[in-house]
Amino acid sequence: MKIVVFGLSITSSWGNGHATTYRGLLREMDRRGHEILFLERDATWYEAHRDLPEPPFCNTLIYKSLDELFAEYGPEICDADCVIVGSYVYQGIEVGKWVSKHAKGIKAFYDIDTPVTLAALDRGECQYLSEDLIPCYDLYLSFTGGPTLDHIERHYGSRAARPLYCSVDPLVHYPMQITPRWDLGYLGTYSRDRQPGLDLLLCQPAASWEKGRFVVAGAQYPSELKWSKNTHRIEHLPPECHSEFYSSQRFTLNLTRKQMQVAGYSPSVRLFEAAACAVPIVSDHWPGLEQFFVPGKEILLASGSQEMLRILQRFPDDERRAIGERARARVMQSHSAACRAEELEEYLTAL
């Protein structure tokens, strides 16, 4: 198929998880024989941090305005077998309306932020999707599964809401045989609703266990935040450094945004990436987690700082490594980029 994708960014992973998702998925679609054009709005904050300016698995176009884009590439978009519009695309409503009117092939919306999107729609504040646009898409691909899919069909009139969860790229995320430098680490862009969980499950344990070694990597953390002396900060960590980062931890922390917790069935891309590196994960709990990992066998759960400290200080090393290996096996079987490409192809073929 000829597939056109409007996405937030594929050239820059700075401050967003979309790039990693698109890179793995579209590389595998290319490997399956599909021809892909990725359309990305030019943005100054991404221009300065483009860690993959020319993806080898798709044609990538950085455009400055929709008028310019549609004037030059309109025929190619119209004739594609499938056009996918992603969440958080700048002027996404305008893009979606143009695509729904002119594109001849399958029209799909790919929601990498489903609970955030639905909450914004309820408030009438969503900048990239409108309620009247949802029925115009043949397919609503969602990072969130479970009851949310039924809600999208029944309440918003989607023709077909299907899960297309985040995934991991095993060429980028894999175990490295190195001695861990940190007892607990966390990788994630700053989020106000995740910060209480980070305070509870990493910052408080770090403050009370001076001999422990901790690390937090991610952009956009406020400068006024205070970190304990035994907590190392990394401002930005490009995807090619993730494997070494995860492999350098005895345990890694997974935190879920509040809206994803409430919706459930919303695994984060960092969850699968960490598992692919065979580092044992300690996570907060949310509905549907058991669909992806078996608690106590493939993942550990913690709800407070003392519980986290007991895991860090007393958990047997052999069992710690075994949990990491079991999580990796689960991800490779069910949550790789190749798995997602196969699922996407099945959805498109059915339509």
Rank of each mutant, 00 (worst) to 15 (best):
L184T: 08
Y186F: 15
Y186T: 06
L187W: 05
L187M: 09
Y190L: 06
S191Y: 01
R194M: 12
Q195R: 11
P196F: 05
L198P: 08
L198Q: 06
L201G: 08
L201W: 01
C203E: 09
A206G: 09
K211L: 02
G212V: 09
F214H: 08
F214T: 10
A217M: 10
A217L: 08
L225I: 15
K226T: 15
K226F: 12
S228P: 09
H232C: 14
I234D: 07
I234F: 02
P238I: 00
H242C: 04
F245E: 07
S248N: 14
R250F: 05
R250N: 12
F251N: 05
L255W: 02
T256V: 04
T256E: 01
Q259C: 10
A263C: 12
G264S: 13
S266Q: 12
P267W: 03
P267L: 12
S268Q: 11
R270D: 08
E273G: 03
A274D: 01
A275P: 07
A275C: 12
A278W: 05
A278G: 10
V279G: 11
P280R: 04
I281H: 03
I281R: 05
I281D: 05
V282K: 02
V282N: 02
S283C: 05
S283K: 00
D284K: 04
W286H: 12
L289A: 13
Q291G: 09
P295G: 07
G296R: 04
E298S: 11
I299M: 03
I299E: 06
A302W: 01
A302Y: 02
S303I: 04
Q306G: 11
M308W: 03
L309D: 00
